[in-house]
Design a protein around this nucleic acid. Structure first.
Lengths: 126, 126
DNA sequence: ATATGACCCATGTGTAGTAATGGTACAACA
DNA sequence: TGTTGTACCATTACTACACATGGGTCATAT
């Protein structure tokens, strides 16, 4: 598995990592069920911080592309190939776009939309 | 019509102005159809910039609380009292809240929601 | 002992957006 | 000429957040 991280690229490092792992799965360079390098080891190989790799892993696990099994390490999810094609961000962007388009139809200011958005995001209970 | 602007208040000046004009209408301190001070004059009285007052007026007109008639000045909208109670922001907040709640249900990160939001807001053509 | 993922504390840098300010200019009227 | 709302140019201060980094700790296992 050859992963290349470009620090000069504007794409966030953790995103670059996610993309390349997904592509490796899609192109059969890693098989479902196979073990992935540990967070610390991969961070060391790529000269990244643990947290950066951990963030990529965490998001990949949420997307069911990989599975973390605690002390046993991290593995490619059985249904990884299918889940790689499911783009969560795309669905979010589309759904959000429709909602915002409706606001603009009612001639709501972009400023007001941003303020309302900020309020909603900050007034959560968790 | 007594309007008091508090510079030390965190509420934006234009928003303070909007609120107080709306309240003046609701409490019958200005009648529908009555003339409002001109932008420049009100800015002078309250020691605000023209643009700040103009912004408040522009938004109030969009909400059909006031009517600007070009060189003839600005007047309280005939249906001002009804339109004052219609809170556009509330509808936006509610609608946006539902959408975002759905995202969180799908365990989408707040970061991702914010990024998607930023993309949608910036990728418009006007 | 050693390694795993996960969690807490925190800092620094860069970007983006808001709010408010100023100046200048315009067409439409009295 | 003077006033109306409106439009454009611009800058300053402030806030919020993303990203990445660092140190430290924890339970769970081999």
């Amino acid at each position: 598995m050859e992963i290349i991280i470009d620090i000069d690229n504007s794409v966030p490092l953790f995103a670059q990592l996610m993309t390349q792992i997904k592509e490796a799965v899609l192109r059969d360079r890693i098989s479902p069920g196979a073990a992935l390098p540990s967070i610390r080891q991969l961070a060391n190989d790529l000269e990244l911080n643990n947290k950066t790799v951990a963030k990529a892993y965490r998001l990949l696990e949420r997307d069911s592309v990989i599975q973390t099994k605690g002390y046993r390490g991290t593995f490619v999810h059985p249904d990884a190939k299918v889940n790689c094609t499911v783009d969560l961000n795309e669905w979010v962007t589309t759904k959000l776009g429709e909602t915002i388009a409706a606001f603009r139809e009612s001639s709501v200011t972009d400023s007001e939309i941003r303020i309302a958005f900020g309020n909603v995001m900050n007034s959560r209970n968790n």
